[in-house]
């Protein structure tokens, strides 16, 4: 599943981005540092407020679960100590998600829809890079599935996810540290290790195999190129000026 990214889609947000992957589309907006409500104020660091909104209906337990995971992951990359007693507000609106439950015949409420998580995380990361919030690091997130026959598939389609034995969401920082693992289904330690390697290749590029670098660009490389193009556009007035 290829993804597409649009940066600065919202005119008034400090950082915003639309991240689409297959049938999933997420709109992220970041505002901050803002004035924080007294009850949420932390004396030594910034409060990070993550809100996940589903494409239809009200946010429920599943969205709270995502918010918790996203909060935990973003806290590791945002330099919260630099903005004490402020608020960093992150809103992630899912604008399109595949209707997996209708096909699977499962009640919608019961599914955890873990495969939405990488899109939410990547959208939040790119929006953060567009805002002026200081970051100690960046990450990229991906979904890996394990098929019943033991095959490991990266960037799976919705049909493949439905037949998968287990599904794993991973996030790697730029230096190659794993900062999020969320798995669902049954799997053994060997196949899990295989999933980790495939996930790292997806996020950071194929470290073990340098023979075929052009096959697929790592997520991190793609993010970096997007942000670089954005910076170069805003600095384009400098081209003819000798400063």
């Amino acid at each position: 599943m290829a993804h597409s990214v649009e940066l600065d889609v919202l005119p008034d947000a400090d950082g915003s981005c639309r991240f689409s992957m297959g049938a999933i589309s997420v709109l992220a907006s970041i505002n901050g540092p803002l004035e924080v409500q007294r009850r949420d104020e932390l004396p030594e660091e910034a409060t990070i407020d993550v809100a996940v909104r589903p494409s239809a209906g009200l946010a429920g337990i599943r969205e709270r679960f995502f918010e918790g995971l996203i909060h935990k992951t973003l806290k590791q990359v945002i330099k919260t100590k630099q903005f004490p007693r402020t608020l960093i507000q992150i809103t992630l609106q899912i604008t399109a998600s595949p209707d997996i439950d209708a096909i699977a015949g499962r009640p919608h409420q019961a599914a955890s829809l873990l495969y939405l998580l990488p899109s939410l995380l990547n959208a939040a990361m790119l929006a953060l890079l567009c805002s002026s919030i200081a970051l100690s690091n960046t990450f990229a997130s991906t979904v890996i599935i394990l098929m019943p026959n033991g095959e490991i598939i990266s960037a799976p389609s919705i049909q493949q996810i439905q037949t998968a034995k287990s599904i794993h969401v991973l996030a790697y920082t730029l230096p190659g540290d794993l900062i999020l693992v969320e798995s669902e289904g049954s799997f053994d330690i060997h196949s899990w290790e295989g999933c980790l390697i495939t996930g790292k290749d997806q996020c950071l590029g194929n470290l073990s195999d340098n023979s075929n670098p052009a096959s697929a660009k790592a997520l991190h490389t793609q993010f970096r190129e997007l942000i670089e193009a954005r910076t170069m556009h805003s600095e384009s007035w400098r081209q003819n000026i000798d400063v």
Partner: peptide, 13 residues
């Protein structure tokens, strides 16, 4: 500052 052709792009991390 003298003009420099290289304007390095830096990225967090």
């Amino acid at each position: 500052m003298a003009s420099s052709t290289a304007k390095p792009f830096v990225f967090p991390g």
